[in-house]
């Protein structure tokens, strides 16, 4: 017999992880982008495009894995616009990011209309048959979906790659100073383009994780600012991939928490409860800035553009 309170904690953990995953993936991508000295506010637009492309591909191929891949590639395509503008033409990064955001919102509202109200099956729960027999941990693992597991594996990989490999070092040095990197024989523009595109890959994947694996439908502007929240949480996580998971859980955990309150029948408007994740993120951002005023930690190349 399972203790009911233990079951609830594991239940809440699973739902927190599930709603954190799209944000986690977006934070990882934006962390890499910002580490090469580029800020991309278009993450929200890239997530939307990834969500729609991923949903449409899943619907027509009947395979959610193809959906995730197509979503990620759509994110790369959107981010290539940002890369071309910011790296190629040295455009203002904030303006370029907003342009990508506006385009992403427009394109997905426009081409998403036939997909509103359609349903997909998503993934059959991974490993469920095997794991359900294992006590406590079994129920927990059996409820995890593929994108949650991918996010949990990707987080340490990105961290190790950034801090422990030679290319990671090169990326970080470009983010600190383009001039110094160039003097040591690195091609900074090439590294920066890669940084933006990999960010596009992650955010497109994040969007697809949302539509293909989390909600399993398409709704106009369904990401609801998660891409922008992710940009804020990169700062909270101090540009450190290892801290991306706790940062993502701030939003995802408070989302899971308010949804639970709602089902528990708390006498507060669901519309008011829905503000909780945004308020929590904003408050944590304030605290993080308060603490960082003493420390810093931003890539030096970013500080000129973005304080």
């Amino acid at each position: 017999m399972l203790d009911s309170s233990a079951f609830n904690i594991s239940d809440l953990t699973v739902s927190s992880l599930r709603s954190s995953t799209p944000i986690l993936l977006a934070i990882l991508g934006e962390t890499l982008t910002q580490r090469v000295g580029i800020i991309n506010l278009g993450v929200e637009g890239q997530m939307l495009v990834g969500a729609l492309a991923g949903f449409a591909a899943t619907l027509s191929f009947g395979n959610p894995w193809i959906g995730l891949l197509v979503g990620a590639l759509a994110g790369v395509l959107m981010s290539s616009l940002h890369a071309g503008l910011c790296v190629g033409l040295k455009a203002n990064q904030i303006a370029s990011g907003i342009a990508v955001l506006i385009l992403g919102m427009g394109l997905t509202s426009f081409y998403g209309i036939p997909y509103v109200g359609q349903k997909i099956h998503g993934f059959h729960h991974l490993l469920s048959a095997h794991w359900q027999t294992v006590p406590i941990l079994g129920t927990f693992v059996s409820q995890l979906t593929p994108t949650v597991i991918i996010g949990l594996i990707a987080t340490p990989l990105v961290g190790i790659w950034l801090y422990r490999t030679r290319t990671g070092l090169i990326w970080r040095s470009v983010g600190e100073s383009v001039q110094v990197a160039r003097a040591t024989g690195i091609n900074p523009a090439f590294v920066q383009v890669q940084g933006v595109l990999i960010g596009g890959f992650f955010s497109g994947f994040a969007g697809a994780a949302m539509s293909v694996d989390y909600t399993r439908d398409w709704v106009e502007n369904m990401t609801g600012g998660r891409g922008l929240v992710a940009v804020g949480l990169v700062i909270v996580a101090r540009w450190n991939p290892f801290l991306a998971l706790p940062a993502a859980l701030l939003f995802g955990g408070s989302e899971a928490f308010y949804l639970r309150l709602q089902t528990a029948g708390v006498a507060v408007s669901p519309y008011l409860l829905a503000t909780i994740p945004y308020v929590v993120t904003l408050l944590v951002l304030l605290v993080s800035y308060y603490l960082a005023n003493k420390e810093g930690g931003a890539p030096q190349g970013l500080t000129a553009i973005f304080r």
Binding site: L228, G232, A274, T275, L282, L285, L286, F306, R307
Partner: peptide, 19 residues
């Protein structure tokens, strides 16, 4: 606090919408 105004205004957009 030195909080970047671009990020905070973008986030406050969603909050106002929800209110």
């Amino acid at each position: 606090l030195g909080v970047n105004e671009t990020i905070s205004t973008l986030m406050l957009n969603y909050l106002a919408l929800q209110l």
